[in-house]
Write a protein that binds this DNA or RNA. Structure first.
Lengths: 218, 218
DNA sequence: CGTGTGGTTGAAGTGCGTCAAACTGGGTGG
DNA sequence: CCACCCAGTTTGACGCACTTCAACCACACG
């Protein structure tokens, strides 16, 4: 067993981050499933790095419609904003461990360490590209393409190769893909009938033909 | 919906007297309407600041479907990417004057000047927020809401208060809003019938009831 | 005056949403 | 251990918003 990893609280380090934590300051906090991390409109005073578990960020429109901006894996940074208030809310989907970094301290460190600034910029542009991909998908793909794109993307970012353990409900997926739970459910059934996936339970999906799923993403 | 977007202080100015640039290096280039500035997939070696005119950034999906990522006003920065190739194409919609900044030089300046790094980070997070707004719109708003949101947003970012001079075609708008030109045209006619706008010509629109249009954006 | 590009409008088609009902699995209490 | 519940999920029937197909219009240009 790799003891170096065993002592670190962040088992997954995505390419945007060089180390397990972004900065050596801040405190560790925990959140239960459904528990709020920060809310849209609150003043920004803290940036969070996901250390373990999964987080969803979302916005509520005037009449209650919800849009899930993204699902966040260990390593992801939350709350890096352009303005002085959070533009979306964040809450845990599983039990979550977060590294909470005071914004002031982060700013101070950034002025001292240009490399940290570079890294933050890279994270921010990466986030921009990701939301642009999301927007392109919502603008031009149909339901089957969206669900296929979601499955392939989730497999790449989170779990293993083809055995997915989805931490989110159908409603979460629907609000992420701009669909309804009915359409998501029907589409998954359709992919199952076509033999592209194998939905063992509603939360456990195996990608049988990842190449064909990828081909559906246009 | 929060329509704020971080742009640099570059007011619309006649070509002979351009506003402040991001950095004191780089060269000025011009592009005609429809002319390419950079293309999706090309290696990133230059970032551009729009000095005058309007630019569209877009992506092409496999089968020819197009998604317009954004329309860019004077002051906006183009080509700030997370990876080593442009993730969308950019071309002029009007005659355009751009400030072309070699990426290497920008990187060097950034390590020397932490304030510039802050500014770039602010631009990047602003761009991320803007694409997130775009995605939320595409995910959850209907055609009327999308067109209304587009008009209000365009009025804020570009032109004057309520007299819009649209530099883009219906196809551009449709590809930005995830609709067809037919739906865009019909929706504008509908808003006209309701007295919310006054479409003098197809490119010239007056917002008669901006408050009501804003109310439509959910 | 003909041609071409972009825009508008109508009629018909369709993909996804809405409404409604049944199902499933996990948790709880009798 | 079983009965029951309940949130989440699946599935069917139907409606509607947007797309598709098609025609016509407006204006610029040679």
């Amino acid at each position: 067993m790799n003891l170096a990893f065993a002592t670190l609280p962040c088992p997954v380090a995505p390419p945007t981050l060089l180390g397990p934590t972004l900065v050596p300051i801040g405190v560790t906090i925990r959140r239960a499933p459904g528990e709020e991390i920060f809310a849209e409109g609150e003043p920004v005073d803290t940036v969070y790095q996901v250390m373990s578990g999964t987080v969803r960020t979302y916005r509520l429109l005037g009449d209650g419609r919800r849009h899930v901006c993204d699902f966040h894996a260990p390593g992801d940074l939350l709350g890096l904003e352009a303005v002085d208030e959070y533009c979306c809310s964040a809450e845990g989907m599983t039990d979550v461990i977060l590294h909470a970094i005071p914004l002031k301290a982060l700013r101070r460190l950034t002025t001292e360490d240009p490399l940290l600034g570079q890294r933050l910029l890279s994270i921010a542009t990466g986030g921009m590209q990701r939301s642009q991909n999301h927007a392109s998908m919502l603008a031009r793909l149909g339901a089957v393409e969206r669900v296929a794109a979601f499955l392939v993307d989730f497999a790449r970012r989170f779990d293993a190769d083809d055995e997915l353990d989805l931490p989110m409900t159908r409603q979460d997926i629907a609000d992420y893909l701009g669909l309804t739970i009915h359409t998501v459910s029907r589409t998954l059934s359709q992919l199952q009938d076509q033999g592209l996936i194998d939905a063992r339970t509603s939360r456990r999906v195996r990608l049988r033909r990842q190449d064909q799923l990828l081909g559906l993403c246009a």
